[in-house]
Amino acid sequence: MKDRMDDIKYSVSEALELPKDVMLDLPRIIMLGNIQLNVSNHRGIIEYTQEALRINSNAGVIKIIGKDMELKTILSEEIIVVGTIEKVEIIG
């Protein structure tokens, strides 16, 4: 049921050229080189250490591996991570 709903949403946003992250409620991940990573529209933090960070989202769990990672900001709509980012993985 949910999948069908998403399909429709996808087609509509494709047809009307609407931003898909808004339509499909997907996270927007912005990386600034390897020193900063912003995740908007997240669903909370699952795990945080200086080496690994897992963030829940509608697209799945975003797993970030790096060194000396710090959470610059946590807000209900955005998380900013700074440090040395080595790997970003999305586990659906």
Partner: peptide, 21 residues
């Protein structure tokens, strides 16, 4: 369960910054 602590703070619109483990 410190992650839970962070999530709860975020949902309550408490602004936290420079978080370090």
């Amino acid at each position: 369960t410190l992650e839970r602590f962070l999530n709860l703070a975020a949902t309550r619109d408490i602004y936290l910054w420079d978080i370090r483990r």
